[in-house]
Amino acid sequence: MYDFIIIGAGPAGCTAAAQLAERGLKVLLVEKCRLPRYKSCSGVLIKKSMDLVRLYFGEETPLHTMCTPTDNRGMIFTNDKGKEYRFEQEGLNVWRSGFDNWLAGKAVERGAQLRDCTTAVFCEDRGEFVSVTLHGDKTYTEKARYVLDCEGVVGALKRKIMGRTDGYITTFQTFNRGNIELDSHYFYAYLQPELSQYDAWFNVKDELLVLGVSVKEPEKTEYYYEKFLSYMKKEHHLYIEEQTKAEKWLMPHIRPGCTVDYGRGRILFAGEIAGFLNPMGEGISAGMESGYQAAEAAASYFEYPEKVLEAYRDGTASLQSYMRRQWSFVGGIAETFREME
């Protein structure tokens, strides 16, 4: 019998596992992919993320997780009217594969057990414990007093538990060799509706030009991507010599009010699968903070599960407020997101 089974070794799951293991609790962290595992992401640690790494793990983000340019100096938004907004802020440019793997290693150092290449296929709250069916080399069952689901938006377990799916945004991005007349130290977001159905973006990782669009209708991905390339060629003299990789991903479609699903009974949700996501897909800081608060609530009220969800909601009140403010700001500068204001 584990005290906690945590599903998903991203920022939310690793932060929760590290916090719980440090308290001396018996923790199993499972990850469906082989570590280090890749995740489609801008890989920008905003200052808040950097501060949370120091707070929760007691260290600076290590150099080996980073890509060049290592320092991110902020974000530059172009709204639906073509007006530019610059936000200067300290940040880091990381590869999620290296960063998440480092976080998982820190959780193991504190005492968590880690099983990668292991999928959680089903779980059931049985009152005194949760039964979790796992599949790795074989299919088997483990028991835990609590389960913390941090799979991310593509996780199938929540759909089985809740019997429903939430809305998704499809993201598509490419990595390219070439050049462009933009400062590689910034992350650029474009909110013009003619370029995407949500947002488009550009940043640089290890001299590769990353260009992406997000859409509500997946069949229109190629159309908007080509429109965005044409825009970047015209406005910033983009030149692509070679495309090295293309990838698609999903992220939650955050709606007005920024509703969060904390879980049911002894099964808790954290990170993107709970609905914690900031504008432009910044989910690292929200994942870490929600994972920590879920772990803190469950550990503090371990023998009183009826109090855990309330404590978790209270612990994330400031995070929810921050998230709403961020979405409201974007709604205030661009008609595309006006419903979020």
Rank of each mutant, 00 (worst) to 15 (best):
L148G: 03
Y56A: 00
G10V: 07
L208C: 03
E341Q: 13
G152W: 02
Q192V: 04
Y2M: 10
G155L: 10
Q113F: 04
E289W: 14
R37E: 06
E217W: 00
M66E: 01
A144V: 03
N93A: 02
E22G: 02
W201L: 13
K248G: 13
E339W: 01
N101I: 04
S131N: 07
I7W: 00
L250Q: 10
L103C: 06
K81T: 15
A18H: 15
G105P: 09
H237Q: 13
A107L: 05
L114A: 03
R110I: 05
S42D: 05
Y188I: 11
R115V: 01
S40G: 10
A120T: 10
D261I: 14
G43P: 12
L134A: 06
A317C: 08
T221A: 08
G291V: 13
V204S: 07
T244W: 04
N203A: 03
K47A: 06
N278E: 14
G178P: 10
E226A: 13
K227Y: 05
D51Y: 09
K307A: 09
C14H: 01
F129M: 07
E124V: 01
G331S: 03
T65M: 04
E90R: 14
T68A: 09
Y239G: 03
G163T: 06
V121F: 00
T244A: 05
V30P: 07
L29K: 10
T118E: 05
G127S: 07
P218V: 12
G163A: 08
L229A: 04
E272S: 04
K160T: 05
E217Y: 08
K81D: 13
T70Y: 11
